[in-house]
C-alpha cells in the first residue's frame, strides 16, 4: 500500500468530519451537564476519537491528527503543551502500524488494540503526572477517580468506533474502502 496519496475531495471532507467529531468530543468532555457522570467521573472522549482514527487511517494522517488532538487535550487538561500530543502521536503510530501491517483491521483487533492502548496511556499519564511528583494520597485518587475515568473512557470508545467506521466507509475513496475488511 503506498504511503503517499493524492488528496481527493472526499478525503478532505473525511478529515474535516474527523476534526468536527474531535471538537464535539472536546465540548462534551469539558462541559458539565453534557456527559452522564458515573460515580462522579466523566470520560476523556478525545482519547477515543484519537484511537479510532489511528485504527482506520494510515500512519502519517493518524499521527498528524493525533498531534493536533493532543494539543487540544493539553489545553483541556492544562498540561504542558506537547505532553498529550507526544503520547497521542506515539499511540497512533503504534496502532496504525499494527493494524495496517501486522493484523487484520477488524472489530476483534480493534478491541485488543484499543484496550492495550488505553491501559498504556492511562498508566503512562499517571506515572508522569502524579507518581513522579511524589504527591500524597495517590492510591485513593487512582482508585476512586483516575482509573474509573479511564474505564469510562474505554466504554465510550465503542461509540466512536461505530461512528468513525461509518464516516470512514462513506468517505474513503471507493477502491481503498473495498480493500479494507473493517
Amino acid at each position: 500500500m503506498p504511503f503517499y496519496r493524492r488528496a481527493s475531495f472526499r478525503e478532505a471532507i473525511k478529515w474535516v468530519v474527523y476534526g468536527l467529531i474531535l471538537l464535539l468530543a472536546y465540548c462534551l468532555q469539558t462541559t458539565k451537564g453534557l456527559t452522564v457522570p458515573i460515580f462522579g467521573v466523566r470520560p476523556l472522549l478525545m482519547v477515543g476519537v484519537v484511537i479510532c482514527v489511528a485504527f482506520f487511517e494510515q500512519e502519517v494522517g493518524a499521527c498528524v491528527f493525533a498531534f493536533f488532538a493532543g494539543l487540544l487535550m493539553d489545553y483541556a487538561c492544562n498540561t504542558l503543551l506537547g505532553y498529550f500530543a507526544l503520547f497521542f502521536v506515539l499511540t497512533s503510530l503504534a496502532i496504525s502500524f499494527l493494524t495496517h501491517f501486522l493484523a487484520l483491521p477488524n472489530f476483534t483487533t480493534f478491541l485488543a488494540v484499543s484496550s492495550v492502548s488505553l491501559v498504556l496511556l492511562c498508566h503512562a499519564d499517571f506515572f508522569f503526572r502524579f507518581i513522579l511528583t511524589e504527591e500524597e494520597g495517590l492510591v485513593p485518587y487512582y482508585l476512586h477517580t483516575f482509573l474509573p475515568t479511564w474505564l469510562y473512557t474505554g466504554l465510550t470508545i465503542l461509540l466512536f468506533y461505530f461512528l468513525l467506521r461509518f464516516v470512514f466507509l462513506r468517505l474513503q475513496p471507493q477502491n481503498e474502502a473495498e480493500m479494507t475488511t473493517i
Binding site: V60, C63, V64, F67, G70, G82, A85, L86, V89
Partner: peptide
C-alpha cells in the same frame, strides 16, 4: 521522517 519530525516537535514544545 514526517512522524519522527512530529515527535521532535512535540518534545521540543514540551
Amino acid at each position: 521522517k514526517i512522524i519522527a519530525g512530529l515527535l521532535v516537535v512535540c518534545f521540543g514544545m514540551m
